[in-house]
Structure formats: structure tokens, C-alpha cells
């Protein structure tokens, strides 16, 4: 451990990572709020899922969730390589994580299109409202994190990826991967 952290300052971790960690706590509470709202409305409903609504694609989404988890797994590998200082063997897992993550988001998008066609819309029932709200907010976070990861990839190639930036980008992606199983269980099951 350095005696006084960055530049003689008493810092605990890179500033970028620290700032992102705080942001993630706030985002965690955003999801906690939506989950709570979901439970309250669900408990008050006479029957769940509401009658006349299409069934959510539980199995396909389960597979897609595995893709997302795999992406998180590859990012862990990239993380290890980064902290070994081995930037060459970091590129492949990072690109894989990025690709699998993008696949997840695109697949979710195609599911939305299918569900809209089957009559599940934002206003068709409280299930629909919550489905699009929760999954949509998660999707926005996923897209933002993927953009950060893409920037990290570019910086890696150009050789100036800092621990602060990479820490922030991967923290956000781990968050996106980490809350998804919870959201899946709450909304789909």
C-alpha cells in the first residue's frame, strides 16, 4: 500500500472508481424503489398475472441471462489481467464481455418487439407497465455501461487506459449484471 495514496493525498481507491461506487449505490436504491412498488401493486391485484395478458418469455430470457452472466465472467478475467499488468491478454476477454453484453441488450429489444405484438403494452395492465419500466430502466443502464466499456476498449488499444476509468466502467457493468438475476426473478417468475 502506498503511504499516502495518489499524489500524497490520503486516497482509498482511484477517484473514478470511488465516484462510480457512490453512483451505483444510488442506482441500487432506484431499483429497490421499483421492486418495492412492483410488490405492492402485485399484492393488491386480485389475480397475478393479470388475465388476458401474454406469458412472459421465461425460458428464452433465462438463456439470455446466462449470456449476460458469461459476459460478467469474461470481464472478471479482463479485470485480473489488468491488475496483473498484462494488457495484451486483457483484450480478448474484454471484447468478449462487450460482445456478449451487446447481444443481451439486442435480444431483450427483440423480445420487446415480440411482446408488443402479442398485446403486452405499457398501458395494457400493471404487469405491462412494470415490465417495460423495470426492464427498460435496466436496459438503459446496460447500454450506458456498454458505452463505457467500449471507450475502455479503445483506450486500451491506444495504451492509456487508467485504473480509475476502467474501474468505473467495470463497476457499472458488474452492477448491471448483478441486479439482473434479481430483476428476472421478481418480474418474470
Amino acid at each position: 500500500m502506498e503511504p499516502l495514496g495518489e499524489n500524497g493525498r490520503s486516497s482509498m481507491m482511484p477517484n473514478g472508481l470511488f465516484g462510480m461506487a457512490i453512483f451505483i449505490v444510488a442506482e441500487l436504491m432506484l431499483f429497490a424503489g421499483m421492486i418495492s412498488a412492483f410488490f405492492i401493486v402485485k399484492a393488491a391485484a386480485p389475480s397475478w398475472p393479470p388475465p388476458g395478458q401474454p406469458r412472459l418469455p421465461i425460458e428464452a430470457t433465462a438463456l439470455n441471462s446466462l449470456v449476460l452472466l458469461a459476459s460478467g465472467f469474461f470481464l472478471i478475467q479482463a479485470h485480473r489481467a489488468f491488475h496483473r499488468g498484462d494488457r495484451d491478454s486483457m483484450r480478448r476477454p474484454l471484447l468478449l464481455a462487450l460482445a456478449l453484453g451487446s447481444f443481451f441488450v439486442i435480444f431483450q429489444g427483440s423480445e420487446w418487439v415480440a411482446l408488443l405484438g402479442q398485446g403486452l403494452t405499457l398501458t395494457s395492465s400493471s404487469l405491462g407497465s412494470f415490465f417495460y419500466l423495470v426492464v427498460g430502466v435496466h436496459g438503459i443502464h446496460a447500454a450506458a455501461a456498454l458505452i463505457l466499456l467500449a471507450i475502455a476498449t479503445v483506450r486500451l488499444r491506444r495504451g492509456y487506459l487508467s485504473p480509475g476509468f476502467f474501474g468505473a466502467a467495470e463497476a457499472l457493468w458488474f452492477f448491471v449484471v448483478g441486479v439482473w438475476p434479481v430483476l428476472y426473478m421478481v418480474v418474470y417468475l
Binding site: I22, V25, A26, L30, G33, L122, L133
Partner: peptide
């Protein structure tokens, strides 16, 4: 930071 999340969730819902 910790308390504002649920209200933002609520505000999005109310706006919807």
C-alpha cells in the same frame, strides 16, 4: 444519494 432512488422511481412512474 441513498434516499433519492425510490423517489426518482416514483417520479418516473408518476410522469408515465
Amino acid at each position: 444519494l441513498v434516499s433519492v432512488g425510490p423517489l426518482i422511481a416514483g417520479a418516473i412512474m408518476l410522469l408515465f
